[in-house]
């Protein structure tokens, strides 16, 4: 388990396309700059979508953690 502290947790499991990215891009705006959002996903596409989204929107993925069928992203709001 990651030890990164996070301000908000988003459950993005089993959502239709493209809701995981839509919800994280809205969710990140709900924490302060410098804070972290934890996103729980089940889509294999999230493993490419989230890094690509972080790159274009200017946020930072601190850690990607796999637990069983789920992947957790810890994303820091940079701006």
């Amino acid at each position: 388990m990651s030890t990164i502290a996070y301000a908000k947790e988003l459950d993005l499991r089993n959502l239709p396309c493209p809701m995981p990215v839509v919800k994280i891009s809205k969710g990140i705006k709900e924490v302060a700059v410098g804070e972290v959002v934890k996103a729980i996903t089940t889509d294999p596409g999230a493993l490419t979508d989230f890094p690509a989204w972080a790159k274009t929107s200017g946020h930072q993925i601190l850690e990607t953690e796999t637990t069983g069928t789920e992947v957790n992203f810890y994303i820091k709001r940079l701006k």
């Binding site: 493209p18 990215v21 839509v22 891009s25 493993l47 490419t48 979508d49 890094p51 690509a52 989204w53 790159k55 274009t56 929107s57």
Partner: peptide
């Protein structure tokens, strides 16, 4: 945002 993400994915596919 979604379109930019898709384009970026194409540009960085080796890393992803």
């Amino acid at each position: 945002m979604l379109a930019d993400m898709s384009v970026s994915k194409g540009e960085n596919i080796d890393a992803l």
